[in-house]
Write a protein that binds this DNA or RNA. Structure first.
Lengths: 141, 141
DNA sequence: TCGTACATTTCGCTGATCGAACCAACGATA
DNA sequence: TATCGTTGGTTCGATCAGCGAAATGTACGA
């Protein structure tokens, strides 16, 4: 199925990006969340990445050592640690991820509005099917 | 982007399937390859999964212990070990993976031929974009 | 039949993740 | 305002997946 191939290409891209930045996949996902979601507490990362708090701590450690994020205590609640992307992370973003979005938008220009609607509908439908099936697999003991 | 969401739903499904079978993601991928590609030598799995030969051996060990695959020496070349899916694996396949295909096909019925063509073209285009970008990231040192 | 190449496995190690214990800070309450 | 349960995060010890290198056993050409 073509969807599988697409999935693999995403995977290959992520791998290339991680290698480029000297990070592992988990760290890259974390960086992605931090870049997208602004400074956010470690616990939020933990649920976003579906990692234990302990593992999340070490992920942040690695990214901090790599100069990609910084820790700061939340002024409003000093138990919290706010994780923020550094300038290095932002420049990596513009260099690696932004062009993907541009290329994608460019490629979409060949479609008309109704074609885009079909594509969007397909993506949503496919997602719904996957989610339903995931539920089925989880619940049908 | 909707594509990201779709990707995550695939991920969630894979996770659910792995949990259901008591396997980890790598083992599940391996099982998928074996189910799809008939009995095949361990080395082939190694390249398909992009794992070292050593890691592949342990993956096969785990799947064998779980009763999902069996090892047999290749009669034509006794250095080789042929890995084959067991009946248990096949019944897991029909119980977990086959319905996904069915549900997918079902969901696609609402599209006409030209709509399907648009969708297919989109999937290919998206993949090409990803692949190009992966190359860019890899090469632009 | 000897030596080299090949396919897989074994071994020792590194690194990511987990659960449990721990520590600090918050907030309710009496 | 002193206390106590709760919350957010880190530390610690253990586990497991994966790698590279060496070992094992098989095939094949000189």
């Amino acid at each position: 199925m073509e969807l599988r191939r697409l999935q693999r290409s995403f995977d290959a891209f992520d791998e290339a990006a991680a290698a480029r930045l000297g990070l592992n996949r988990t760290d890259l996902r974390c960086l992605d969340v931090v870049l997208a979601g602004g400074p956010l507490p470690a616990g939020r990362l933990s649920v976003a990445l579906k990692l234990s708090p302990a593992a999340t701590t070490t992920v942040i450690d690695r990214l901090e050592r790599a100069g990609m994020v910084s820790r700061a205590p939340d002024p409003g609640n000093r138990r919290r640690v706010l994780v923020a992307a550094t300038d290095a992370a932002r420049s990596a973003e513009t260099e690696i991820f932004v062009p993907v979005g541009r290329a994608g938008a460019q490629a979409l220009q060949k479609y008309g509005p109704d074609e885009l609607a079909v594509v969007l509908d397909f993506l949503r439908t496919a997602r719904e099917v996957q989610e339903e099936q995931a539920v089925r697999v989880r619940t049908s003991s």
